[in-house]
Design a protein around this nucleic acid. Structure first.
Lengths: 204, 204
DNA sequence: GTCCTATTTCCTGTATACAGGATTTAATTC
DNA sequence: GAATTAAATCCTGTATACAGGAAATAGGAC
């Protein structure tokens, strides 16, 4: 998600100019569709949102580049956030399967730890799902991930000690913890046998 | 999320005028903080984003109401979507624990099916995590959830048949499937013994 | 302290966002 | 068909978004 580590960011030119216009296309279709599904006239939406009919009409016809404030008001009139309004909904294949036997999803397998990815590689959402098997006394330690990253860990067998920042907790089989992963964090097997758990990582 | 069923929408006035300005406050702090954490000068960000230094400076000082195109470019320069840029981040407690023995998280327990919630109730992300135990020949059927909702199901033991819309697939122990839950969908135990699985539900 | 460079803010002019009224188009009823 | 009303688009003028250069400020070296 980061475009560079700050050392020479100017060389990582991120803008693709056409995406600007793609955004506008998304917006116009979205507003048109939402207004239709709510059965609002331009006038009703104008009154609800406090944005003029002209402006709404122009937006729907892709003739406007609204300010954030205007966009906010329109989103709000539909009970949506800006992100919900302007971010396109991509079409998904209905079901994507990851087989247990698929070696591509074996992320790590060594003496201490075995990690298997359970979510499809091309999954659109910023969510990842892993199965972890950690040997006694071994641990999985991470530096801080990106801001807003969280992990949800469920212990299926064994005993885990979770550290996030300076907070520590212990989990037994059946317990779950949701913790910040945008701080240094770790999962340690503090029991006698193997620690088996599932980990959901969510990125903001 | 809907503001009415279309019968008399004009009476549901949704706008709270001050939130417009709250948005601007969020934006200015956000851009300031992001630029700082990436160690960009105004000039570097200007070049990256294609937005003038003046404009960025004004945004950071809360003196601007940028258009969507400008907002998009700035978000893009930081590798974020517009929603990610303008939607505020609430502070999280570091670790939130759900104990296996907590009866509040037992969502359903009957002859056919046992569902336990593994994610904390007040979890900020639109992600939910469940443990499912389904008896032979029993199934869990849902109508379509909200648009964009997806489910990620991992089978730990047994055999499952997943239906999403008109797509059907079978999973064995160790397999996972990611599927649309914004269509009618179901999980059925098509084996002889109990089906044990974990379900990650993500809302858009 | 001075000098130099980097960074940010100010200033100004142009383009465009936007509202509100007028006009056009569409839909309905007779 | 005509008449009426509703809905959408066009037109125009004002305010403001925005870029680019100038000026001010900040930071570092000596």
């Amino acid at each position: 998600m980061s475009i560079g580590n700050g050392s020479n960011p100017a060389s990582d030119y991120a803008l693709e100019k056409t995406n600007d216009q793609d955004l506008n296309r998304v917006l116009c279709h979205r507003v048109t569709e939402l207004r239709k599904s709510h059965k609002f006239t331009l006038d009703q939406l104008a009154r609800l949102s406090g944005v003029s009919r002209s402006m709404i009409s122009q937006i729907e016809r892709g003739r406007a580049n609204p300010t954030l404030a205007i966009t906010f008001r329109i989103a709000n009139a539909f009970g949506l956030s800006i992100g919900e309004l302007v971010e396109s909904t991509a079409s998904n294949p209905n079901i994507e399967v990851v087989h247990g036997s698929d070696p591509n999803n074996l992320f790590r397998a060594d003496d201490e730890c075995r990690i298997r990815t359970l979510s499809p590689l091309h999954m659109e959402k910023n969510v990842e799902f892993y199965e972890l098997i950690i040997e006694p006394k071994a641990s999985l330690t991470s530096t801080a991930h990106f801001e807003g990253t969280q992990e949800l860990l469920t212990v299926t067998s064994g005993t885990a000690e979770i550290v996030s920042g300076e907070t520590v907790c212990r989990l037994s089989a059946g317990d779950s913890a949701n913790y910040r992963a945008d701080l240094p964090h770790s999962v340690r097997n503090c029991g006698q046998g193997k620690l088996r758990c599932y980990l959901v990582v969510t990125y903001r």
